[in-house]
Design a protein around this nucleic acid. Structure first.
Lengths: 133, 133
DNA sequence: TTAGATTATGTTATATTATAACATAATTGT
DNA sequence: ACAATTATGTTATAATATAACATAATCTAA
C-alpha cells in the first residue's frame, strides 16, 4: 500500500515547495482542490503529518503553518527563523548549540526527544530596509 | 483605566497558577464562568495576551495552551520542557545557550527579537518509571 | 465638571484550525 | 481468492481564535 498515499505526499510537497511563504493546511487544501475538488481536510492533515514525520516538511507551531524542508538532510530538528516583517522563513541546522541546550536541561533529568525552535525577528532584507529609512 | 483590566488579569493568573497542567484558553474560560457566566472568548484571549506580553504567563505554541510563569524574573524567553508522558511542563532559563544560538543565526543577517523553544521528551519522574519496568 | 478623546470591555457572530468516527477501497500476505 | 491490514473518503463536529462593532469606564484638558 503505497501509491495512493505517496500520490498525495508528492502533490502536497510540490505545493509547499512552490510557495515562498508558509502555508496553512487549508491553503494547501485550496490548491489541491484545483485538481481534485472533493478532497477533504483529514486527507490533507494526514498527508502533512506524514511529511513532517519524515522530515520532508516542517510545521511552524507559532504560525499553525507548514513549509517544505529545504535542507538536504531533512533534519527534523531544524531551527526556524520567521521574519515578522515580510513573513520569510528560513531553516538552520545548529546541532552543536542544540546539543548543549539539551544537555543543560538534562541536568534536571529531562530527556529531550524533539524540539520546536522558532526564532521571530527581522530578516536581513527587512533589516536593511529599516536602517536605510 | 486599570482596575477592570487588572481584575481579569489577576483572576486568570490565579487560575493558571492553581493548575498543575497547561490550560487551553477555553479551559480558563470554563473556570472563569463559575464566577461570571457571561464572559466570552475575546475577553479571555485579550487577558492571556496581556499576561504573555508582560511575561506573567507563557503560551505553549506546540500545545495551544498557557501556563503561569514560575520564574521570578518573568523572562519572556524561557525554555519550556513538556513531558509527553504525563504532560508536566517546566521552565528553564538558559540565557547563555540562547545567546549563542541567536549569534549563530545572526551571521546570516537575522536579528532575533523573540523565540519559541519547546522541548518535548520525558521528564525525570516518567523516565524513572520507564526504566524500572 | 464636563465634553471629547481614548482605551477597555461586552457581545454577537463567524473565521480558522483540527480531529472523531465510521464506511469504503486498495494492498498485502498466505 | 480470502482474510487481515492499512489507507482513503466522507460526514460531521470539535477546538481554537478573531472581526466587528456597541457600550462603558477612564482620562485630559478647557
Amino acid at each position: 500500500m503505497r501509491s495512493r498515499k505517496e500520490k498525495w505526499q508528492v502533490a502536497v510537497l510540490e505545493i509547499l515547495q512552490a510557495s515562498e511563504k508558509p502555508m496553512s493546511a487549508y491553503d494547501v487544501l485550496g490548491e489541491l482542490r484545483n485538481a481534485n475538488p472533493r478532497i477533504a481536510p483529514p486527507t490533507i492533515y494526514r498527508t502533512l503529518s506524514y511529511l513532517v514525520e519524515k522530515g520532508r516538511a516542517h510545521r511552524l507551531e507559532s504560525l499553525n503553518a507548514y513549509i517544505a524542508c529545504k535542507n538536504h538532510k531533512h533534519d527534523k530538528s531544524a531551527v526556524i527563523t520567521i521574519c515578522e516583517d515580510c513573513g520569510a522563513v528560513d531553516e538552520y541546522v545548529a546541532t552543536d548549540v542544540l546539543k548543549v541546550l539539551s544537555n543543560v536541561i538534562a541536568h534536571s533529568g529531562f530527556a529531550t526527544l524533539r524540539h520546536v525552535i522558532e526564532l521571530q525577528g527581522v530578516c536581513e532584507n527587512c533589516g536593511f530596509e529599516q536602517t536605510s529609512v
